[in-house]
Design a protein around this nucleic acid. Structure first.
Length: 456
RNA sequence: GUGGCUGUAGCUCAGUUGGUUAGAGCACCGGUCUGUGGCACCGGGGGUCGCGGGUUCAAUUCCCGUCAGCCACCCCA
């Protein structure tokens, strides 16, 4: 099969584009509801924007090349460095806290598989300049509210929340050494995907005594703050972290997303730059990859953008989200995007030829109708009305419109059985003349009488 | 980057123990039906059987390679 696109890249046919537009619309609607403003940056950036912090090993997954000016460049694999640069350049002039979001198309060069392509769109939502845990609650709430906006519920999607500072304090309490942290993080991250005996072996190999291994493994089963307090609440070093986490949960509760949230200490996120809260959104059945991930990265702007401001954010890709919506039958309908009127040649086509049909089309379009027709003047006068109406119906139009003898314009609804569909006739002359009152009356009748088509 | 599975029409799939011109349903295009039409019926277009090589009188079929897709690793921004 000849594929027209490069591996891991997508063609968006109208069906697929409709899904993408549906997701984008939900992203923008919720982001705007939370008073975030949209920004964007270049899709192509200097290579060193990404290698400076992460090292050369990341190049293997970058879509990079040398441009005609001998610059080492890369298609952006993530938005955060661009975001950090933009914020850093105007940090003093921007009113804090900053609430920004973007919908960049991101690229990575690696083997594509389900839910993971070489190109995808990712909503990025970031808050800069606010250290309070209320900002963390607000951010998680944006992500969860997008799920709600798309028709998903707490039974479909779970928000798993953890906190790096809390986790670090717990590990210190347990007795994990600084040098063992990386291994512990990796083991926690893979807790659900890796057999426990392998996890234990890895911890032991890092030099942990059996008792410490047991306690680390137990962390995975702590699913609530209450359990966490029972296990560690007595430790004075943990109290401020537990209290802060509790306040965040209370805020989230008040913002209406408490029912979606689970405490889960195995959420560590791959990136080293997270410094506080971390969270991921998963489908509740656990069949798909993470829908969304983010957290607090208070030191990153200083490292990337040169300004020392606390920050937090998340990224949410369109690919996994689209798959989830497909699985749950939450795909959009096309009712709002197809033609309202489809002009066909009727019994009045002899007295009102194609020119009159086009004039009518023009006035209807000016009045706000979406108008389609066959783009073939010969067919207008020769093809049977019935076949033309069939074409209109197959094309998803809400109604067919045509001239009838007696200087009339007839409108036939195309929803359901023809005999039961609404039908109306209007004097042709005023509509052809573009008479505003006649057109307004026509449109009012149409809007209140003709139902939208669905694509079931 | 590693391993496994798969590849026939736009889609879902038949089929060929190797043999003349590769099929169906849906979709698409044209038409008939003066009309329960979100039908029915008639006709039509569309395939280098992923691509390349090998074996053979003959390959879509068997073999090798390659590319692509899926899955598991790796990685996850």
């Amino acid at each position: 099969m000849s594929s027209g696109s490069l591996p891991g890249f997508r063609d968006f046919y109208p069906d697929e584009f409709a899904l993408r537009a549906h997701i984008f619309a939900a992203w923008r609607a919720v982001a705007h509801r939370y008073a975030f403003v949209e920004y964007d940056g270049p899709p192509l950036e200097p290579l060193d924007l990404y290698t400076k912090k992460s090292g050369d090993e990341i190049v293997g997954q970058l879509y990079n090349f040398t441009d005609k000016g001998d610059r080492a460049v890369a298609l952006r694999p993530e938005m955060t460095p661009t975001f950090a640069r933009m914020v850093g350049a105007r940090a003093n002039a921007l009113r804090k806290p900053i609430r920004w979001f973007s919908i960049p198309q991101l690229f990575r060069y690696e083997r594509a598989q389900r839910g993971r392509l070489r190109e995808h769109f990712q909503l990025n939502v970031d808050i800069v300049g606010e250290p309070s845990e209320l900002a963390d609650a607000e951010l998680i709430c944006v992500a969860v509210d997008i799920m709600r906006e798309l028709g998903l519920g707490p039974d479909d999607v779970r928000a798993r929340v953890s906190d790096r500072q809390l986790l670090n304090a717990i590990l210190e309490e347990i007795g994990v050494t600084e040098g063992q942290l990386t291994t512990v993080y990796a083991v926690l991250d893979k807790m659900a995907r890796q057999p426990h005996d392998i996890s234990r072996t890895k911890l032991a190999d890092a030099g942990m005594v059996p008792k410490h291994v047991d306690r680390v493994m137990e962390l995975a089963s702590l699913g609530s703050l209450v359990e966490l307090r029972e296990a560690f609440g007595a430790a004075p070093a943990l109290v401020p972290h537990l209290d802060r986490f509790a306040r965040m949960l209370e805020h989230a509760q008040a913002l209406g997303v408490g029912a979606w949230m689970d405490l889960d200490l195995t959420i560590v996120r791959g990136l080293a730059y997270y410094t506080g809260s971390v969270f991921e959104l998963f489908d509740a059945r656990g069949e798909l990859r993470a829908i969304c991930g983010g957290g607090r990265y208070d030191n990153l702007l200083a490292a990337l953008g040169g300004v020392n401001l606390p920050a937090l954010g998340f990224g949410m890709g369109d690919v996994v989200l689209g798959e989830l919506l497909k699985e749950r039958n939450l795909l959009p309908t096309f009712s709002g995007t197809r033609a309202d009127l489809y002009v066909v040649g009727g019994d009045g086509a002899l007295e009102h030829g194609i020119q009159d049909a086009l004039t009518l089309t023009r006035h209807c379009r000016d009045a706000g109708f979406r108008v389609d027709y066959a783009l073939n003047a010969e067919r207008y006068s020769t093809q049977s009305t019935r076949n033309q109406v069939d074409a209109a119906k197959k094309g998803g139009a809400r109604a067919a419109v045509y001239f009838e003898p007696g200087d009339l314009v007839a409108v036939q609804g195309l929803h359901g059985k023809m005999t039961e569909a609404p039908r109306g006739t209007f004097a042709a002359a005023p509509l052809l003349a573009g008479d505003a009152h006649a057109m307004a009356a026509f449109k009012q009748w149409f809007d209140s009488t003709i139902p939208h088509r669905t694509n079931d």
